[in-house]
Simulated scan of single mutants.
Amino acid sequence: MVTDSLWTYNSPDWDDRAVTVKRGEVFTVVKDKFAVGNGHMYQIKSGLYITANPSYVRVYTK
């Protein structure tokens, strides 16, 4: 993450907030970027969803 904190979501719905995560946390993406409303999300290994907006998150590949 490149922002101080960020919401995660229980489902691919911007109104279904779960918990916040902090800068520096790293997540494993299990579902690549997909459209949700006017934005995009990733599904992460925990089953939660997170924004795919590059202003807030960075993707690293091996």
Rank of each mutant, 00 (worst) to 15 (best):
T3E: 14
F27Q: 04
Y49Q: 04
K45C: 03
T61Y: 08
G39H: 06
H40F: 09
N10E: 14
S11L: 02
R23P: 00
K22W: 04
Y60E: 10
I44P: 12
V21D: 00
T20V: 12
R58V: 07
V30A: 12
V36Y: 01
P54F: 06
V2F: 03
A52P: 09
F27I: 03
K62R: 15
N10V: 00
A52G: 13
V59N: 09
R23H: 13
G47E: 08
D13S: 08
V21G: 03
N53I: 05
P12I: 06
K33S: 14
W14C: 03
K62V: 07
A18I: 07
V30W: 02
T8A: 05
T3P: 01
V59Y: 07
L48P: 03
D4I: 02
P54H: 04
T8P: 01
I50E: 00
V19T: 12
P12H: 08
R58H: 10
T28C: 06
G39P: 05
E25H: 05
T20G: 00
S55Q: 15
S5G: 01
D16R: 06
T20D: 12
W7L: 12
T3L: 07
Y60I: 03
K31H: 05
I44F: 04
P12K: 13
K31A: 14
F27V: 03
V29R: 14
H40I: 02
G24A: 04
F34E: 12
A35Y: 07
D32W: 11
V30I: 15
S46K: 09
V36S: 06
K45S: 15
G24K: 07
P54Y: 10
F34Q: 04
L6W: 08
K22T: 11
D15W: 11
A18C: 00
G47N: 13
R17L: 06
G37F: 00
T28D: 09
V30M: 08
W14T: 03
A52V: 07
K62H: 15
G24Q: 05
A35Q: 13
Y42H: 08
V59E: 13
G24I: 10
D13V: 10
T51H: 03
H40N: 15
R17C: 02
V21W: 00
N53R: 04
R58K: 14
S46I: 02
V57M: 08
D13L: 04
V19R: 14
I50V: 15
K22G: 00
L48A: 13
P54V: 10
K31M: 12
F34S: 05
N10S: 04
S5E: 15
S11Q: 11
D4V: 07
T51S: 11
M1S: 04
Y42F: 15
V29S: 08
G39E: 09
T28N: 12
V36H: 01
G47H: 11
V57Q: 04
V21T: 11
K31L: 03
W14E: 09
W14Q: 05
L48K: 13
M41N: 09
T51M: 14
V19I: 08
I50T: 10
G47P: 00
T61A: 12
V26W: 12
I44W: 01
Y56E: 10
P54M: 12
